[in-house]
Amino acid sequence: MDLVLNIADYYFFTPYIYPATWPEDDIFRQTISLLIITNLGAYNLYFFFATLSYYFVYDHSLMKHPQFLKNQVYREIMHSVKSMPWISLPTVSLFLLEVRGYSRLYDGVGEFPFGWFRLLASVLSFLFFTDMLIYWIHRGLHHRLLYKRLHKPHHIWKIPTPFASHAFHPLDGFLQSLPYHIYPFVFPLHKVVYLGLYILVNIWTISIHDGNGCKNEKLFNGEGKKAE
C-alpha cells in the first residue's frame, strides 16, 4: 500500500492538502491518508465493478423470484456504503504496519534467489493460504454463537445481486478479508503483486454474488436452523 500512498502524496496530498511542514512519514498523516485512500478505493471498485456485473453479467430474471426483497438493490447498496468505512478502520491499521515496514513485502524481484520463480510461486501460495483460511473463518461464522450476530445480515439477500458483495456486518467483512492481510506478514510477497491480488480479490467478491454463488450457503446456514 506504500506504493499507492507515495503516488497520492506526490500528486495530491503534499501539493494540495497537507501543510508543507507536515512530514510525509508522520504516522498520523499516514493514518489519515490511508483512511482516505482505502475508502475511496473501496467505493470506486465496488460501484464500478458491481455496476458492470449487474448490467452485463447478472441474470435479471432472478429478480422475479419470490425471495427477492422489495427495494433490494437499494438496500444492498446502502448496507455496503454504511459498512465499508467501519471495515476500513482495522484494515487501515494493517496497511499502516505495512507502510512502516513491519511486513515482508518487498520491491525488487532480484532480492531473492530464483526471484521470478519465487514471485510466481507466491501467487499460488497466496491463493491457497487465503482460500483455506477464509473457508475456516466462514465456517466459524456459521456457528450458532456467531451466525445471528455477525453473519446472518449478509444472508438476508437470498437472491443476491453483485451489490450485495460488500453488504456485511463490519466485523464479518473484516474477518473474511483478514487472511489477505495476514499473508504478507508471514510470507515474502512483491508489493505490486500484493496490490494486484488485493484488487482482484475485491472483483472476485463481486463476481460470486451473481445470484448463484451463494446458493450453497444453505448447506451451512439453513436460515440459521442448521448453523452449528
Rank of each mutant, 00 (worst) to 15 (best):
K82C: 08
S61T: 15
V92Q: 06
M78Q: 06
F68S: 05
Q67K: 03
K82N: 14
D59S: 10
Y54W: 07
A42E: 09
F68C: 07
K82S: 11
N44P: 06
I77N: 12
L69Y: 01
F47H: 07
Y54F: 00
K70Y: 15
V73S: 05
R75L: 11
L89Q: 09
Y46K: 12
K82W: 13
L52H: 00
K64Y: 10
H60Y: 03
L45R: 04
L45S: 09
I77V: 15
H65W: 08
Y43D: 00
I87G: 05
N44D: 15
R75F: 08
L45W: 09
S53M: 08
T91A: 14
Y58W: 01
Y55A: 00
V92F: 04
D59T: 11
H79P: 03
T51M: 11
Y43C: 04
M63K: 10
F68M: 08
S83K: 14
L69T: 02
N71S: 01
S88I: 02
P90L: 07
H79T: 07
P90V: 11
M84S: 08
N71R: 01
D59R: 03
I87L: 11
H79K: 04
L62V: 08
Y74P: 00
S53Y: 08
T51L: 14
P85Q: 13
V57W: 03
K70V: 14
N71Q: 00
H60N: 07
F49K: 03
L62Y: 12
V57P: 02
F68H: 04
A50S: 12
T51R: 09
M63W: 02
F47R: 06
S53E: 01
W86N: 13
Y58S: 06
E76C: 08
H65T: 12
Y43L: 02
V57Q: 01
F48A: 11
Y58G: 02
Y46C: 13
S61K: 15
I77P: 05
V81I: 06
Y55D: 00
K82P: 05
H65A: 12
F48L: 12
F49P: 00
Q72Y: 07
Y43A: 02
H65C: 07
L89P: 06
